[in-house]
């Protein structure tokens, strides 16, 4: 597989007027404030139920843009490909990038590929960066959570993490589960149109909802309290977690967001989310409070009515026997 061949393949599959010019850089007209981000994607297995590394590399960056309230517009993609990687697999990956771009209404405007020696990479790595425009008046940040805010999650938790885990070598579980991998730009656009009381948006990827809530609590200097009974899970995710001794709150999601919303707007935001295909199972899971002890913490109320501390997950999530 030559570099030229790969470049041709990408150019054709991801074609749009800007990319087709094949200039050294894309020139873009963007109004107002812009959001700009980058994310590298490494996933094993490369193809998984509900997606592949191509779709993931698009939705990951699209979602990062959306989480500051931006409308995702343009993406660039860099590929590191291990020599010997199958061309037909690459074709599939690029096709699903195209599908994700169309679904989200974004364009891939520049790309680069490098083929490296066998063993220097694991199949294919994809780095995408993205630009989006932030509408006037939108100020969304992880440091904006305020006491009294209502916390909403856009759907079932842990689908992606449980799917990937079940497909990992050495696990051998069979389960009808799909990654939730999806672009959330349109959902966010609808939410912002419905309410000006959205303070924080975050997609709970690595480290799951537990990591996201801890990050926000620290950034905003607030306590977060969630109610375990209200968190939406798929039955299969719950079962897989029981089997493997994992907490679904630490599993990665790739098509979900957590929103912190002013109390008065919570109902309308929830309703808007539920009307979207990307938020049909949205649910209120908790609220924000003043810090009550020496530092910001995340509490989970259990079915006993007591609270446990939901700590920041450390390291990779592994099945345990004890």
């Amino acid at each position: 597989m030559t570099q030229e061949l790969v470049a041709q393949l990408f150019g054709k599959a991801l074609s749009n007027p800007i990319l087709d010019r094949m200039d050294d850089a894309a020139s873009l007209d963007i109004e107002g404030r812009i959001a700009f981000t980058v994310d590298s994607h490494v996933v094993s297995p490369i193809f998984f139920p509900g997606g592949d590394i191509g779709r993931l590399s698009m939705t990951g960056t699209i979602n990062d843009l959306a989480m500051v309230g931006a409308r995702p517009l343009y993406i660039t993609a860099g590929f590191i490909i291990e020599e010997g990687f199958l061309l037909e697999e690459l074709v599939r990956i690029v096709a699903s990038m195209r599908d994700a771009a169309d679904e989200a209404g974004v364009q891939v405007v520049a790309g680069d590929t490098k083929v490296v020696e066998r063993g220097a990479a694991d199949g294919v790595f994809i780095t995408t960066s993205g630009v989006g425009s932030i509408p006037d008046g939108v100020r969304i940040s992880g440091s904006n959570a305020r006491p009294g805010d209502i916390i909403i999650v856009s759907g079932t938790i842990g689908d992606h993490g449980a799917t990937i885990l079940s497909k990992r070598e050495g696990m051998d579980f069979e389960v009808e589960l799909q990654s939730d991998c999806a672009p959330l730009g349109r959902l966010v656009e609808e939410m912002l149109a419905a309410s000006s009381g959205i303070h924080v948006l975050r997609d709970p990827t690595r480290g799951g909802v537990a990591a996201t809530l801890n990050e926000i609590a620290v950034s905003s200097g607030v306590d977060v309290e969630i109610e375990e009974e209200k968190i939406p899970y798929r039955g299969e995710v719950r079962a897989a977690c029981e089997l493997l001794g994992l907490d679904p709150l630490v599993l990665a999601n790739e098509g979900k967001l957590v929103a912190f919303v002013a109390e008065n707007d919570a109902a309308i935001v929830l309703e808007t989310m539920r009307a979207s295909r990307y938020g049909a199972d949205a649910a209120v899971i908790g609220r924000v409070a003043e810090v009550e002890s020496s530092r910001p913490r995340v509490y989970a109320r259990t079915l006993l009515g007591s609270r446990r501390i939901l700590s920041m997950p450390t390291g990779e999530q592994l099945p345990r026997i004890c």
Partner: peptide
């Protein structure tokens, strides 16, 4: 720990 039994 998971069910907050110690605290209750």
């Amino acid at each position: 720990s998971r069910h907050g039994i110690r605290q209750a």
